[in-house]
Design a protein around this nucleic acid. Structure first.
Length: 800
DNA sequence: TTGGTCCATCTTTTT
DNA sequence: GATGGACCAA
């Protein structure tokens, strides 16, 4: 095997890239615009260090934000160097790196408030715990929403502020402090940490134990960081500490792509880095290798409206390319239909499914899109971990495993102690909890004692009538604990499923039941991949999977994802939907200029994902929750020069609000759309049944191992590929276009006025062909909006 | 204790 | 239009 020698690949870089890759030891700040070869620079820098500078991989640390990014870098390094050459390199996410450090250091007793087998609580568990903390303090969790309180706690942790240091200026602050303290105690009791703790405890450990800091800082001669604009206070401190011996730190970022402010990220860390390191070398990468100039011009026109940034002028030698399509659909259904129709049309002309991505601001927006894809019989892939891990059956199974891993995990125990139902109710659980509290043990420990001593244990009496069922469960539980040492992971998994009789509980014979069981099997398959690595690694990776990590790679289908999840990716053809005021920018950001700036950056990130063609889509009428509301076009659209755009749609209803002047006073005609929300969901009389939704909805997440990665030391390589979380015609990897349906004639068009025998006059909001029938959404003054089939409803056109 | 139904509430974005 | 909580009947 012959690998590139350093000089060979250096020649393939542009001067700025080369300058970055070969930068002298010390501090380097690379400002990398979108598509400027950031990952390339990072990986080649590592290769350069190893090959030309003689640095041992063992002495290099590379940190990313997602496992996917880490994996990609690992694969590229393998190509550059050959797997063996990179052995010993630490390459992984902030969180995984910290978990690793904590697992090691927690072996020294007394250093940390948890043991080495700690569990990582996910977002759900964290909220759960906050709720408990609130209730224990007799605080109403209706008024003080756990999510809001948790956000405050998380913010404090991200800023290295302890509960005692939190300023108390209001009653609300008092609540936060109380909850915060109890929350931390509960974590400790559960031998658990939250996401923020992973980082926080490492920083604390480093700050209080210089000798430990030195151990790591000496090792890491060179530290490299990706997506530096997304670091928060804790991460910044961590990097500072870990590079405090050799002071060689190389960071890459783009302040314009900072979109995690709400998570504590602060793009000003880029500035801070410069200030903290006066001698640092600063390199600007402006050449874009991804997009057409048209896309870049649009991106620039949007981002230039933001203040406080280093102005950049991205340029491309790819030529002007196609204009940007701006489509205004009548409503959100039509918006989804437009996207799918357009994609289908292009597929017929030979485009590949994988060329397309559809991006949106909120996850909720995916639903209509999914439905449209399903109706068209078109496969798609959906990015989002929650879709799978959020499912009850998956969470149940994980809870069983977590409990076996860490018997002190009461959140998991409470979740599954009565699952499937085994005559253990609230009273019994409370009795057990009370007994545990009194004895100073965890509930799990109580169970183990009970299993051993049965009715001779003091708990038995306290449990009263509940003792029997609890005892039975305790016996199961203690059996699993013993089995943990003997069985491998899949076998343990199977044993739990069998002994709890879990299958009949969730698989009730319905389609949904089958789906649920499929998910359990899916998780089992995943467990199978950890057969050798074991429970600890399995649980840790489950806790730290990101949405991006779930993006299936081999599938050649259009991708549906949030704008956040799109960062770091690129696609030939990109649709951004929901360009309406209140969606993008999101309504929650309206009052805060900083937040608005971030919304703008989010849009910028979306635009710059496009290589060839960008489609911007909005809807004049959109249902949030269930109420239809007129939409005003996003203000961001105003910033894109008209000559970059080709417009379509936008002729009817509510008007293109801000896009063209609309001198019509016709609003009154449609005012029912605003309030009479109830008409929407009720009265199904003539509704088109959503027939095929369950019959051919395969709803499965299948998992397959990615390339045979020669793992250096397991870092960031333990990843899975999720394919087609929801897919019809799963086999259509080639995305062969389905035969064009015979198009029936459309008798009505959008915006037309019609009369119905019983409902009177109405306005056609949209007309399209569904399942071979012309299907209309009509807004009636009398009954609100109805969906009708043209051939069945006795509709009469009024005028034209 | 269980499992059903009805109601309210909600939605950013995610390691 | 989904989810979780409260409430109620067996």
């Amino acid at each position: 095997m012959v690998y590139f020698r350093a000089m060979d690949y250096l020649n393939l870089l542009n001067p700025q890239q080369r300058q970055a890759v070969t930068a002298a030891p010390g501090q380097t700040l690379v400002l990398a615009g979108p598509g400027s070869g950031k990952t390339r620079v990072l990986t080649q820098r590592i290769a350069y260090l190893i090959q030309s500078m003689g640095v041992r991989p063992y002495n290099i640390l590379a940190v990313t934000f997602t496992n996917k990014a880490a994996r990609e870098m690992g694969e590229r390094l393998d190509q550059l160097l050959g797997g063996a050459r990179a052995r010993g390199l630490w390459l992984g996410t902030f969180h995984a790196m910290c978990a690793r450090i904590l697992r090691t250091e927690a072996n020294n007793p007394g250093l940390l408030p948890f043991q080495s087998n700690f569990v990582i609580f996910d977002a759900d568990d964290q909220q759960n715990l906050v709720k408990r903390a609130l209730r224990e303090n007799n605080i109403d969790d209706k008024i003080n929403k756990p999510s809001a309180i948790h956000a405050r706690i998380s913010e404090a942790k991200n800023n290295l502020v302890s509960p005692d240091d939190l300023p108390v200026r209001s009653y609300r602050d008092e609540i936060v402090v109380k909850a915060f303290k109890r929350y931390n105690e509960l974590l400790q009791q559960n031998n658990a940490v939250d996401f923020d703790d992973l980082l926080l405890w490492v920083v604390r450990l480093f700050e209080e134990h210089p000798e430990i800091t030195e151990k790591y800082a000496r090792r890491f001669e060179y530290v490299l960081v990706d997506e530096f604009q997304d670091t928060n206070m804790v991460q910044y401190s961590l990097l500072k500490l870990i590079s405090s011996y050799h002071h060689n730190i190389f960071v890459v970022g783009d302040e314009d792509q900072s979109i995690y402010r709400w998570r504590g990220a602060d793009y000003r860390n880029m500035l801070r880095f410069e200030q903290d390191n006066p001698g640092c070398e600063k390199i600007l990468l402006e050449q874009n290798y991804r997009s057409t100039q048209t896309v870049l011009d649009a991106a620039r026109s949007v981002i230039d409206q933001n203040a406080n940034r280093t102005p950049k002028s991205l340029f491309s030698d790819r030529g002007r390319g196609e204009k940007i399509s701006l489509h205004e659909a009548v409503d959100d259904h039509a918006e989804a239909a437009y996207v799918v129709d357009t994609i289908q049309g292009l597929l017929r002309k030979g485009a590949l499914g994988g060329d397309f991505a559809v991006m949106y601001r909120t996850n909720a927006q995916s639903r209509l899109l999914e439905e449209a894809f399903l109706r068209a019989g078109l496969a798609y892939r959906l990015v989002g971990a929650q879709r799978f891990y959020g499912r009850r059956e998956v969470k149940d199974m994980i809870a069983f495993l977590r409990l076996v891993h860490n018997p002190d995990d009461e959140i998991s125990l409470q979740r599954i102690i009565a699952v499937p139902p085994r005559s253990i109710g609230e009273k019994t659980v409370n009795a057990l909890q009370f007994a545990a509290q009194k004895a100073g043990h965890s509930m799990g420990a109580m169970l183990l004692e009970l299993a051993e001593k049965a009715d001779e244990s003091p708990v038995w009496k306290e449990l009263g009538r509940g003792a029997g069922p609890i005892f039975d469960f305790a016996v199961l539980f203690s059996g699993w604990l013993k089995a943990k040492g003997e069985l491998d992971l899949p076998a343990l998994f199977d044993r739990i499923v069998t002994e709890t009789d879990y299958k009949p509980y969730i698989d009730d014979g319905t389609d949904e039941g089958k789906d649920r069981w499929d998910n359990v099997e899916e998780l089992r398959r995943l467990a199978f991949e950890y057969q050798n690595k074991g429970l600890v690694d399995f649980l840790e990776n489950l806790a730290l999977v990101s949405d991006q990590d779930t993006l299936p790679e081999q599938v050649n289908s259009p991708t549906l994802l949030t704008l956040h999840a799109a960062k770091g990716l690129e696609f030939p053809q990109v649709f951004i939907v929901g360009l309406d005021d209140g969606i993008l920018p999101h309504s929650r950001s309206r009052d805060d200029p900083e937040e608005m700036a971030e919304e703008r950056r989010l849009f910028y990130v979306g635009i710059t994902r496009a290589k060839d063609h960008l489609y911007l889509v909005r809807a004049g009428l959109r249902s949030t929750y269930g109420n239809p509301e007129y939409q005003v076009a996003s203000q961001f659209l105003d910033d894109i020069p008209e000559d970059l755009l080709v417009r379509s749609g936008g002729e009817v209803v509510g008007g293109p609000a801000r896009l063209k002047s609309w001198d019509d006073t016709g609003e009154d005609d449609y005012s029912y759309g605003r309030r009479s929300s109830s008409h929407y969901s009720n009265s199904r009389s003539n509704d088109v049944s959503r027939s095929n939704s369950s019959s051919n909805d395969v709803s499965r997440s299948s998992v397959s191992r990615s390339s045979g990665s020669r793992s250096s030391n397991g870092w960031g390589k333990t990843s899975y590929d999720w394919s087609q979380p929801r897919t019809v015609h799963a086999a259509s990897g080639r995305s062969t276009p389905p035969p064009p349906a015979p198009e029936p004639e459309q008798k009505f068009h959008d915006g037309q006025r019609v009369r119905h025998p019983s409902w009177g006059e109405g306005l056609v909001l949209s007309s399209r062909i569904l399942d071979g029938e012309e299907t209309l959404d009509v807004a009636f003054e009398s009954v609100g909006i109805k969906r009708l089939i043209a051939s069945l409803a006795k509709l009469e056109a009024i005028g034209n």
